[in-house]
Design a binder for these strands. Structure first.
Lengths: 388, 388
DNA sequence: ATCAATACTTGAAGAAGTTAATTATTCGTC
DNA sequence: GACGAATAATTAACTTCTTCAAGTATTGAT
């Protein structure tokens, strides 16, 4: 039924997949609770769970709290044995590769990074290969428990066949990265767009758990958005989805590299903030850290740059809320290291622009450790174990 | 297996449902083609189709064109017997109710309308009841083939339980319209938001057929948008979805009744166009038809109002394309009666604002007969037969 | 100790789909 | 015009997954 891990596939009957993903994402649950939750009979859950327990992926916890009014056999909740298998996740950027080793519950157990000097396919593959070695070295557990590698990078990716259709920052077109990396590392490789990978991670292991629909907005050099609707990741028909960064929020705003004007990214992207701060201070070598420092010290005009950025982001997420009506929204990314400068402006702007009850949508705003991108890649790899 | 129509449900095994909906939406198809399309064995299709044929919902067509190089038994395509059952669809507006009788393929066979003077629940139910009688009278076929009624109205609707959570134009809150109308008419009733109903109709019976994801934008007094993503209608968690009309496209634009400024609806809604045209002509009694006439005659300022409206709509659909990446977009609605004044401006604006390959998304623009809203309601009723 | 309540397990029965063999129908060829 | 290759549809045996109904397990309350 479950052909074992060596077959490289972990696909069982529908009920087994549903049981495993539910236990994985929603923590310890009893069999009856699973049956109710999934619309199955409890007998079906018992049967579906057995091979998963035998393979060591699930185990039973001791009964804990009593359930209802008084009586009855206590439930023995099923839980995932997180250390049954480990997953590598690697994020590829223009100038480095960052990797992590995660367990089944996407907890990070080791991490590493390597610089990248040339963007050509072979150089990237070589550095990914070395990074994988580094990760194996840094990983304290049993190497044979690591069999899968997730790669994440910005661009238009066909996750199904591991193809990089187009990557602007690497200048790649139609590179079969999945196949190449699998050959190089001997691991089962998945490839996904970085924002979608992070969204998947949040959907299965973060604040998106249990949400029928939710949106993850990333703020950094670029401004992106991953969407889950009706429980499924939105892919976009033409390689475009979640391009919140190129919504126009100010027709008179600064020009954007996309050719438009007043895009969210052209106002709130890290580069845009630096450019504006330089204009206002007359310091051509000012960095983003300088800008943050100046704003925190109370430099009026630089503060205004951050205010304007927060307002633009709020506008963007309001557009998402008005159009797809997610259950919740998470705003995250390296760009939010200066969280305190954005927070209230994002919220104010969102609440002003959200239509009607959409304003009730909870918005979490929190900075993102850069490692989280690699963890997102690992999360996709975990998903590929369950839903190939 | 199929418990017959009298049971009020038409739910079979998954394969049967898939076969029926595919034949219904994608026209006559042979069993082998269905098998390929649905990932089933041809044996499964044969088995699934038989009870549907026995019940009279499907029938076999004579073999038509030859398929490939030369030989082989010709396929006998399965087709829907459109007149096996009929469906009522009623759109409720602030001042009238409009109804149609449709066959299984959503072809209109009869229609009727009645004025509505009071917006209270009982008055609406009475008029709906009378309209149903009128429709039965106007319907040339066998009345016993009509068992279902779809209602569509603007507002926040819970389709599952037929509840009108909130309807601004009727000032209703939490009205169990489905139950009430079922009691009044003796029919199986579905209730859906009007824009979503129209989207469902387009998804099953119009230009949206076969699209994994698509968007329908309606232009009229309000500007709305229905979305299908991953093959499923987007519902929105807080009763809000597809609120394209309240995206901000011009921060300095006119005030909108929603409290914002420069919303698409405040620029391109029918009322907004009339208001602006009045301002420019100084004629306080000018109607939308007058405005259209003036624009067609070449009145510069009134033309500019339409241009601006088209540009705003283009902006809105570009936002949809950038965020969800639909396979195709249809722009429709009574407001497009003056189609020629909008068309090119919508397209230009869309292409300028769509990001990257999203600009390749085909956009159809076409006016909408008002009856189409009622047909949308009927389409939801047809869906409820297949997917309860 | 007994009972009611809840959780889980078991084995038989049933539903839904697959594979493989069979029948049906056509075209092209000799 | 019979024959075979090609494609379509059907049939029957079998597999897989799930439910149902009955039983076992474990607790709290009486």
């Amino acid at each position: 039924m479950f052909p074992g891990i060596d077959a490289g596939v972990f696909a069982g009957p529908p009920a087994a997949t549903a049981v495993f993903t539910t236990v994985l994402t929603e923590g310890p649950v009893s069999r009856v609770a699973l049956a109710r939750r999934l619309g199955l009979s409890s007998a079906a859950v018992t049967k579906a769970a057995r091979p998963l327990i035998d393979l060591g992926y699930l185990h039973e916890l001791a009964a804990t709290e009593r359930s209802g009014p008084g009586a009855g056999r206590p439930a023995s909740p099923l839980a995932v044995r997180a250390e049954r298998e480990f997953f590598l996740g690697v994020k590829i950027t223009a100038d480095e590769v960052i990797g992590v080793v995660c367990d089944l519950r996407a907890q990070v157990h080791a991490s590493a990074r390597r610089p990248l000097d040339a963007p050509d396919v072979d150089a990237v593959l070589t550095e990914v290969g070395r990074l994988v070695e580094d990760l194996f070295d840094a990983f304290p557990g049993d190497r044979s428990l690591v069999r899968r590698l997730g790669l994440a990078l910005s661009g238009d990716i066909d996750r199904g066949i591991g193809l990089v259709r187009y990557s602007p920052f690497l200048h790649w077109r139609d590179v079969p990265l999945g196949r190449l990396a699998a050959r190089r590392t001997g691991l089962a490789v998945t490839v996904e767009n970085d924002v979608k990978a992070l969204t998947a991670a949040e959907h299965w292991f973060g604040e998106g758990v249990g949400a029928e629909s939710f949106a993850l907005v990333t703020v950094g050099t670029g401004i992106g958005c991953g969407l889950v609707v009706n429980g499924r990741l939105v892919s976009g028909s033409y390689g475009v989805a979640g391009e919140i960064g190129h919504l126009t929020v100010d027709a008179d705003g600064p020009d954007c590299h996309c050719g438009g004007r007043g895009c969210v990214e052209a106002i709130a992207g890290t580069d845009a903030i630096v450019t504006q701060a330089r204009d206002h201070t007359g310091r051509p070598d000012l960095t983003i850290d300088d800008a943050v420092a100046l704003a925190r010290e109370g430099h009026e005009q630089v503060r205004a740059v951050f205010t304007r950025a927060g307002t633009a982001i709020g506008c963007g997420i309001a557009a998402v809320a008005n159009l797809v009506g997610p259950t919740r929204i998470v705003v995250s990314g390296e760009g939010l290291a200066a969280y305190d400068l954005f927070d209230s402006h994002i919220r104010t702007s969102f609440e002003r622009q959200a239509f009607g009850a959409a304003a009730r949508c909870p918005v979490s705003i929190r900075p993102l450790p850069f490692e989280a991108w690699a963890r997102g890649a690992a999360a996709v790899s975990i998903q590929s174990l369950v839903v190939p």
